[in-house]
Amino acid sequence: MTDLAKLNIDGPVATLAFNRAEQRNALSIELLDALHVKVDQLAEADGVVVTVITGAGRAFCAGMDLKQVIIDADKGGSGKPDLPRRLLASLGRLTVKIRTLPSVVVAKVNGAAIGGGCGLACVCDAVVTHEDAKLGFPEVDLGLCPAVVAPWLVRKIGAGPARAVLLRGGVMSGGRAGEIGIADVVCPDRDSLDAATDEVVRRYTESGALALTATKNLLNDLDRSRDETIVLRGAELSAGVLATEQAQASLVSRLR
């Protein structure tokens, strides 16, 4: 079986890839479990200064795995009523783990970063993408609530802009994501993303590793990034809305 999450450590630079390209790296419970294992390894890895998170294939991460958040097995779902709740809580815990890694974390948003996928980008210390990538939080369009990732968007772009983004739903281009502060570096096209990311990574690897970690820890302290409670409460809220008939019907219609 292929690894759903691939971790490669090359000196001071680690690369963690979502590796479920055929499903646009949608977050299944299996992918999330695999990511937890790799992120735990990263937290213990000596000498890693920068971690790059990216997606295999064309997408960065398309968000929650549709088949696992639909409950009714007769309609293509999992038949496991508690699975969506577990998925969302797992995603919430994963975001806190990524945020508190000692290395600087760069999201290399190679393609679609949707919903939970965009939340995973926002939790990173820097987001690099390209003009044509699609990012956003279309949860409300599907009758869902992006509560689990909302704390990270608020910390990334501020409360006022976050309210507008989350309530308006939809997706935006990488260029627009740069304008509103979701993306920090926006290169013109997919072909230039590797070089742009390498450049960002190089700035960190040339810096003092201890100084970076101390600065990051202090920032996590000041913006309360270690507070898992708010994220898990968000996961509960997201799961509650997701279980409603309205949301389930909307998700089923998307599956067809």
Partner: peptide, 13 residues
């Protein structure tokens, strides 16, 4: 705000 502050304090550019 925290997003830009994080970017600018960690990145020496």
């Amino acid at each position: 705000g925290p997003g830009p502050a994080r970017r600018r304090l960690l990145d020496p550019t």
